[in-house]
Simulated scan of single mutants.
Amino acid sequence: MVPWLGLDDPFPPVERALGAMSGAPGLLAASADLLPWRLADAYRRGIFPWYSDGQPVLWWSPDPRMILVPDEFKVSPSLRKTLKRVLREPNWEVRVDFDFAGVMRACAQSPRRGQRGTWITAEIIDAYSALFRSGHAHSIETWHDGRRVGGLYGVAFGRMFFGESMYADVSDASKIALAALVGHLREHRLEMIDCQQNTSHLASLGGREIARSAFIAHVRRAVAEPPIPWQFDKGALARLAHRGESAGPHGNGR
């Protein structure tokens, strides 16, 4: 039985979420509201909302949990070439927190394979925008010729980043934003990005699953740490783009 949360009710322990044999593995609780304070409390506990229009707010903590370790991010040869072009050509830009609500709306309008409609409703946009105004949500945006062509958004507490959604209007635009995020988090030694649930796309970029118990233990430590700064560092993206490259056949640059 999934508990219904009244206005002042705390979240149940994540171990009480529905198991793998249920029809909704990871479902922990439901509520009528998506208030910013409850949303912030959820993330600090490794819980996130996911529901559709016409449903109550559904709160989830799946087991296992999909994560991306920044040092394990896979830069394919084609993405490496793209990142070098972005760094080299002035008509490409990466911006942080320039158009957060616009990124959310673009993610909501982006078609998803196997999905009808979107879970990023007006209520979701309002709640996450409140977290953005308080400094706990961020967008990483890819711009080309003065137009936003891709990006992602997520939630940050302490030294933990919880990824939410991404979109691309042109090829690789979302991967550029993700690479910029990974480069930034590597510079500040963040150990983990929450990706929530397993997808083949995330796995191709280096994402993997870990046990919920390990994930929650890390979140409890990470969210208690001081927050990191948020701005685009071109050098961090350059270091990521060149990571693992050989200097030459003998490693001497010739």
Rank of each mutant, 00 (worst) to 15 (best):
M1Y: 08
L83G: 07
A106M: 15
I176R: 01
A222H: 06
V14D: 01
A130V: 03
A24L: 09
D33W: 03
V170F: 10
P25V: 08
E93M: 12
V155W: 04
L205N: 01
R116M: 09
E89N: 13
D97E: 10
I140M: 01
S165Y: 02
S139P: 05
D194P: 13
A211I: 07
Q231N: 11
S78R: 04
D233A: 14
W59K: 09
S61W: 08
A32T: 14
L190N: 09
E93L: 14
E187F: 10
A156R: 11
A29W: 06
S31V: 12
G244Y: 05
E209I: 09
L152S: 05
L58V: 11
A214L: 08
E191Y: 05
G6F: 13
E15Y: 01
I228S: 00
L27K: 09
K175N: 08
M166Y: 05
P10H: 11
G146H: 07
G150Q: 04
I67Q: 02
G19W: 07
D8S: 15
A179K: 00
F98T: 12
A179F: 08
T199I: 05
L68E: 05
A127F: 11
A177L: 04
A224K: 00
L240A: 03
T121K: 12
P62C: 12
R116H: 10
N91W: 14
A156F: 04
R45D: 06
F98R: 15
M104Y: 13
R44Y: 04
D172I: 08
R112A: 10
C195Y: 05
V149M: 06
R220P: 02
L240W: 03
D97I: 13
F73M: 08
G117N: 12
G248R: 09
I120G: 07
R80S: 01
W230S: 00
I210D: 06
D169W: 06
V155L: 14
S246N: 11
E123N: 13
R221Q: 10
A214C: 04
R220D: 05
C195T: 07
N91I: 14
D126R: 15
